[in-house]
Design a protein around this nucleic acid. Structure first.
Length: 182
DNA sequence: CCCTGATTCGC
DNA sequence: GCGAATCAGG
């Protein structure tokens, strides 16, 4: 790859549009490593990296193996706040300006959920936050923090946090979002 | 095993 | 400068 100024410009553009390095590579007909390497050399703003390479954590192995197993085992006490269904999160396709790593706090965009799924269950009207047993669906309905917010609470699938209806929406295949149109 | 991005280092 | 190899987390 000869990095002409045009190529560099394109790389910068795609990079700033938040495309993955592999995706940029695909579009430009080069390897992901090429893209990463060049971006690195150009000192383009780093993306949220899946790995953390600070010196402290860098040598957990070299500095001697952990001699004993961690002594304590915390048994999960309370479940976190409203779980965000996978489907709701899967929408990074064409984010114009990717947030900085620290700022990356995806907020549940519950409002975008299919309206058809939001039919209130009578049983919950008086128990807005019921998600009593592990067998009741914890799909959030409504805007968290607002009066109408509640969970679905229909009987959830065996071993799943959602009922059949919501599981179908939650476990969506987001693969192959190749972003071909450009 | 798939994905991701970062770093290293021979070229 | 380049990018494959490698690393490492999700």
């Amino acid at each position: 790859m000869d990095w002409t100024s045009e190529a560099i410009e394109r790389l910068r553009a795609l990079w700033s549009e938040g495309h993955s390095t592999a995706e940029i590579g695909r579009r430009m007909g080069v390897s992901k490593n090429s893209v990463v390497g060049k971006a690195h050399r150009l000192q383009l703003p780093a993306r949220p990296s899946p790995i953390r390479r600070d010196p402290a954590a860098a040598r957990p192995v070299a500095a001697g193996r952990r001699p004993t197993l961690p002594p304590l085992r915390v048994v999960a006490a309370a479940p976190p706040v409203a779980p965000v269904p996978a489907a709701v999160m899967a929408a990074p396709a064409a984010t114009p300006m990717p947030p900085r790593p620290e700022a990356r706090r995806p907020e549940p965009r519950v409002a975008e959920m299919p309206a058809a799924l939001g039919a209130p269950k009578p049983a919950n009207v008086l128990r807005p936050f019921a998600r009593a047993s592990a067998r009741s669906c914890c799909w959030p309905i409504g805007e968290p923090g607002t009066p109408g917010f509640r969970f679905c609470t229909a009987e959830s699938l065996n071993g799943k946090p959602y009922c059949a209806e919501h599981a179908a929406v939650a476990y969506v295949r987001v693969k192959d979002r190749r972003e071909d149109a450009a």
